[in-house]
C-alpha cells in the first residue's frame, strides 16, 4: 500500500496538504444564499452538455443529405436517444438562462468593479459563446425552422459593415447555405466553441481564485457568525444539491416536453411562421423594428458597451456623481430585454 502511495507520490508530487488547500477554499457566507450559486449552475449544465453532446455526436451526421435522418434515428430508434436529445436541448435552454441570471446578479451587485473588470469581459465572452453554441446547435437539427434560422442569421452577419461578406462566407462555407455548411456548424458547435468555453471557464475560475470571491455582508447576518464556511463538505453538498435539482428538472422537462422533430428543411419553401429560439427573440424583434444596417450596428454598439461596462461605469459615476447610476441603467436595460422578448413571444409575425 505504501509502495503504491510512494509510486504515485513520486510521479504526481502533490501533498495532501496542497490538495486540501486546492479544494478547500474558504467560501464566503453569502454563498449560502442560493442565488449566489448561479455561476456554478451553467458550469454544471455545461458538463451535462458535454456528456450528452458527445453521445449524440456518435450518431449525428453533419451533412444535409443525412443530418435529418440521423436525428430521426437518434430520436426514434436509438435506445434512450429521445431522452438524451431532449436533455441536451433543455440543458442548453437552462444554461443560457443560468448564464444570463448569473450575469444579472454580477451586474446588480457591481461585482465587475475594480479589480475584476477583466473577469467581466471573460464573462461576456462566455455569454457570447453560449449563445453561439445554442444557435449552431439548433441549426444542426436541419428541420425547417433551424434551416431558415441559420439562413437569416447568415444574412444578418452579411449586413455587418466591411467584414460582413467575409463573415457570412466563413460561417456558411460558401456564398449561400450549401453542402459544406452543416459540417462547419457542427465543428463550431461541437469542437471550437466547447473548447473556447472550457478555456474561458478555466481563466474565469482562476480569476475568481486570484481575487477571491466578492464578499458581501447583509444587514440581517448575525454579527458574530464566521464569515467563511468550508468548500468541503459544506459547499460541495450545496453544489451536489443544485446539480441533482437540475437533473430532476431536466428529466422532467425531457419527458414532459421532449425535443420534437419538425418537417425536414426545404430550401425552396420558407415556413409561414418563422422564429428563432427564445434567447434570440430580442434581436429578432430589434431587427423587425429597425433597418437591417441600423439593427446590426446598434446591436454591435450595445454589445461593445456591455463588454466595456466596468470602465464605462466608472466614467458614468464620475460624470453624474451618482453611485447607483449603473443599477438604474441595468433596470432599464433588463426591462427592455424582457419587453422585447415578451413582445416577440406573443405575436405571430
Amino acid at each position: 500500500m505504501t509502495r503504491l502511495a510512494d509510486w504515485i507520490n513520486e510521479r504526481i508530487p502533490v501533498s495532501g496538504e496542497q490538495l486540501r488547500e486546492l479544494t478547500n477554499e474558504p467560501v464566503p457566507n453569502h454563498l449560502r444564499r442560493w442565488w449566489f450559486c448561479l455561476g456554478g449552475t451553467p458550469a454544471y449544465l455545461f458538463v451535462v452538455q458535454i456528456f450528452t453532446g458527445i453521445l449524440l455526436a456518435l450518431y449525428y451526421q453533419p451533412a444535409p443529405a443525412s443530418a435529418y435522418e440521423s436525428i430521426r434515428y437518434i430520436t426514434e430508434e436509438a435506445a434512450f436517444g429521445w431522452y438524451l436529445r431532449s436533455m441536451h436541448k433543455w440543458a442548453a435552454t437552462l444554461m443560457i438562462a443560468a448564464v444570463i441570471l448569473h450575469q444579472l446578479r454580477v451586474y446588480f451587485t457591481a461585482a465587475y468593479r475594480r479589480p475584476r473588470e477583466l473577469n467581466w469581459v471573460i464573462g461576456m465572452a462566455l455569454l457570447m459563446c453560449t449563445l453561439l453554441t445554442g444557435f449552431t446547435g439548433y441549426s444542426l437539427v436541419f428541420e425547417q425552422l433551424s434551416y431558415w434560422g441559420a439562413t437569416v442569421a447568415a444574412n444578418i452577419s452579411d449586413a455587418v459593415p466591411l467584414v460582413g461578406g467575409t463573415l457570412k462566407m466563413l460561417l456558411l462555407g460558401g456564398a449561400e447555405y450549401n453542402e459544406h455548411t452543416l459540417s462547419r456548424f457542427f465543428i463550431i458547435h461541437a469542437a471550437i466553441l466547447p473548447t473556447t468555453i472550457t478555456l474561458l471557464v478555466i481563466v474565469h475560475i482562476a480569476f475568481i481564485r486570484m481575487h477571491g470571491v466578492t464578499e458581501l455582508r447583509f444587514d440581517d447576518d448575525p454579527p458574530n457568525e464566521p464569515r467563511h464556511f468550508n468548500f468541503f463538505p459544506d459547499h460541495i453538498t450545496t453544489e451536489l444539491l443544485i446539480g441533482l435539482l437540475l437533473m430532476v428538472v431536466l428529466s422532467a422537462l425531457a419527458t414532459i416536453l421532449p425535443a420534437t422533430l419538425g418537417a425536414k428543411a426545404d430550401p425552396l419553401t420558407t415556413p409561414e411562421i418563422i422564429k428563432p429560439e427564445w434567447y434570440f427573440y430580442v434581436s429578432f424583434r430589434w431587427l423587425k423594428l429597425f433597418s437591417l444596417t441600423f439593427a446590426v450596428l446598434s446591436t454591435g454598439f450595445i454589445l461593445a458597451a456591455m463588454f466595456l461596462w466596468p470602465w464605462i461605469d466608472v466614467g458614468l459615476r464620475k460624470l453624474t456623481g451618482n453611485e447607483d447610476i449603473s443599477v438604474w441603467i441595468g433596470v432599464g436595460g433588463t426591462l427592455l430585454l424582457i419587453g422585447l422578448t415578451v413582445w416577440e413571444a406573443v405575436v405571430t409575425h
Binding site: L241, L244, V248
Partner: peptide
C-alpha cells in the same frame, strides 16, 4: 440530496 436522488431515480 438523498430525496432529490430518489426523485431523479424515479424520473
Amino acid at each position: 440530496i438523498a430525496v432529490l436522488s430518489a426523485t431523479f431515480l424515479i424520473s
